[in-house]
Amino acid sequence: MSYQIPGTGLPAAQLCRYGVSRLQVRGPRRDLDRPYFAFLGGAETFGRFVETPFAALVEEALDLPCVNLGCINAGLDAFLHDVEIMRIARAAQAVVIQLPAAHTLSNRFYRVHPRRNDRFVAASSMLKTLYPEVDFTDFHFVRHMLGSLRRCSDRRFAVVQLELEQAWIARMRLTLRTLDCPTVALWLQYRDSSDGALPGEEPMFVTSDMVRALGPQAEHVLHVTVSRSAEAGDLGDMIGGALNAPAAAHLPGPSAHRQVAAKLTEVLRPFA
């Protein structure tokens, strides 16, 4: 018997956990006793509402198992704090790490949930001092909180954004050092609608200057610009039904995954 996991569009058999990891990643489970590629990332790497995500397409093209460690709502904090996931990634022939949005990291201004990095947990005394008029108990999601701060003051928000950028660079460098294996940094970029207070570019708050600041540790950076499923005419090919269609419209669809897979296949071929 199989049932659909809410918010993924997938039956339970298409999700899995490895070892003692607490992260639910895209399945089916792959054999880790033979050479493989590993893929770290959020909803796009997971392939939310997509039947065949780009990791599976690369597997077909290169005939090498691709372990999809993509996890919905996960950022760098979730992966770095999961010993099992990092162990699996370090043992790979090569790792593809999707560059995450900068707002999904705990920093000096606020903390995010350790696994669901889109969830706002608490503001620091620094942020409360910067925004004394804001009641932070009103917020459950980081994006909602940041949009409200931006509307309060562009000048003060610039201080917050600088912290996000610096935290992202530091955490990405730590992640790349921890992986210590051939790594492809996938900068998967697309336009998404926002409330007008925040950038409409995904991954949010990530710039070319920040990627360059990663230095030689990010030896292989693959920048791919795609369209959302609604813009690409892919919405009808997304899985999950009408109930999930509004959420699916904001994510890359099957054609975008094919585009990413084609480029990744060429980059990863020397490591196969």
Score class of each variant (00 low, 15 high):
residue 39 F to Q: 04
residue 65 P to L: 03
residue 241 G to N: 13
residue 48 R to I: 12
residue 165 E to N: 08
residue 147 G to P: 06
residue 144 H to L: 07
residue 18 Y to P: 06
residue 138 D to V: 09
residue 236 G to F: 02
residue 23 L to Y: 09
residue 3 Y to P: 05
residue 192 D to I: 12
residue 119 R to N: 13
residue 271 F to Y: 15
residue 85 I to S: 08
residue 263 K to I: 00
residue 121 V to C: 09
residue 196 G to N: 04
residue 157 F to K: 01
residue 168 W to H: 09
residue 238 M to H: 01
residue 189 Q to C: 13
residue 260 V to Q: 03
residue 11 P to N: 11
residue 128 K to Y: 00
residue 198 L to R: 06
residue 232 A to R: 11
residue 92 A to E: 08
residue 261 A to T: 03
residue 238 M to P: 02
residue 183 T to Q: 04
residue 169 I to M: 03
residue 102 A to D: 00
residue 21 S to I: 07
residue 91 A to N: 15
residue 18 Y to C: 06
residue 118 D to I: 02
residue 49 F to C: 10
residue 253 G to T: 08
residue 209 D to E: 14
residue 19 G to D: 15
residue 137 T to D: 13
residue 146 L to R: 01
residue 213 A to F: 01
residue 218 A to T: 02
residue 239 I to G: 09
residue 160 V to G: 04
residue 180 D to G: 01
residue 199 P to E: 05
residue 209 D to A: 15
residue 141 F to Q: 15
residue 231 E to W: 06
residue 87 R to H: 12
residue 117 N to V: 04
residue 147 G to K: 04
residue 190 Y to K: 06
residue 76 L to R: 00
residue 46 F to E: 07
residue 265 T to F: 10
residue 68 N to R: 05
residue 90 R to G: 03
residue 206 V to K: 00
residue 244 N to F: 09
residue 36 Y to P: 05
residue 241 G to E: 12
residue 189 Q to F: 03
residue 262 A to R: 13
residue 238 M to D: 03
residue 57 L to P: 08
residue 130 L to Q: 11
residue 52 T to K: 14
residue 148 S to I: 04
residue 136 F to D: 01
residue 4 Q to E: 15
residue 160 V to K: 00
residue 249 A to C: 06
residue 239 I to S: 05
residue 45 T to D: 09
residue 142 V to Q: 03
residue 23 L to R: 07
residue 44 E to W: 00
residue 154 D to W: 11
residue 262 A to K: 13
residue 242 A to T: 14
residue 161 Q to A: 12
residue 161 Q to K: 15
residue 122 A to K: 13
residue 123 A to G: 05
residue 242 A to F: 12
residue 225 T to Y: 03
residue 127 L to T: 05
residue 257 H to C: 04
residue 200 G to I: 09
residue 42 G to E: 08
residue 45 T to P: 06
residue 179 L to G: 11
residue 267 V to P: 09
residue 174 L to I: 07
residue 32 L to R: 03
residue 260 V to K: 01
residue 135 D to N: 13
residue 203 P to S: 09
residue 82 D to F: 00
residue 177 R to N: 14
residue 38 A to C: 08
residue 120 F to G: 07
residue 230 A to T: 13
residue 81 H to T: 10
